[in-house]
Design a protein around this nucleic acid. Structure first.
Lengths: 148, 148
DNA sequence: ATTGTATTTAGAATAGTTCTAAATCTTGAC
DNA sequence: GTCAAGATTTAGAACTATTCTAAATACAAT
């Protein structure tokens, strides 16, 4: 196979975050992260794959999953599971929650959330809480209008 | 004893809840609901299927999904999606949240939650909020101990 | 009883994710 | 630089989860 220059462009924050989890920065991981940040519409692995292929035609589905896992592991991306369908990915690591329209399946970022402190969650002895995920379910404006 | 009578035993609350969504009480729906309440360990559809088969050997997987959907639709059961794996089902309709161990995948009910009022979520115009799902992620006591 | 609709069923089909083994790339020791 | 060890990528197969389909059955209302 023809190999062009395969090394990743230097990217401080990405490199560091990955290294912290014992992972390397690769062009594929860089590309997947870029795809996620370009359009933060909570794409599925399959959508990420299709978008990544535009700039990197040889990338494979397995690699997309590998990259997504790597980015999740090192805290650069959140996994969002809202229904029985495909898992979605979110590169917005700011504290926020997701609104899921039970009717049409669309997802919206809601820039408001419940912090662990505010929630004052008391867990039984031994549990170690890492983070709280808040998912809001209901109808999006479009579907709410139609439902009337 | 083998009962060939196929009609569902009367069950007021179940019947009513289903009827409210235009659905009938059937022996299968009754059985699936019973399985969920017998062991509230957040089983997957497949686990529900296997448990239901003990008392109802002819039940099919498609029916289990149909029944779970029916019970979710009429508000008797909650769907719980915590990771990329199979969806889990929870018949506890009390306000509560789920603790998910990111290490071993076990799920615990946490009888504490954030109410919509407490959260004071302000949604953009047009959204209609139905309910808030709170998922706690971290390590269960066993895994937390091992991690040390 | 009869008819129309809801529900169940088995199995096929589809969708989503993980696995495998070989090829390629990167890093670090020399 | 060269080499070996280990990490990563790749295509495709395999597997798991869910949905669909069409025929059979059950139910409710005439």
């Amino acid at each position: 196979m023809l190999t062009h220059s395969k090394s990743a462009k230097s990217d401080g924050p990405l490199t560091e975050a990955l290294a912290h989890s014992g992972l390397r920065l690769t062009p594929q991981r860089q590309q997947v992260h870029e795809v996620l940040r370009e359009k933060m519409d909570h794409p599925t692995a399959d959508q990420v794959f299709m978008r990544a292929k535009h700039k990197m035609p040889e990338i494979s589905m397995a690699t997309v999953y590998n990259c997504l896992d790597a980015l999740v592991t090192c805290g650069l991306v959140r996994q969002v599971t809202l229904d029985r369908g495909a898992t979605r990915y979110c590169p917005n690591m700011q504290d926020h929650s997701h609104f899921y329209c039970d009717e049409c399946g669309s997802v919206y970022d809601i820039l408001q959330t419940i912090s662990p402190e505010d929630a004052d969650i008391k867990l039984p002895r031994g549990f170690r809480l890492k983070n709280i995920e808040t998912n809001l379910h209901g109808l999006c404006p479009d579907c709410a209008a139609k439902a009337k």
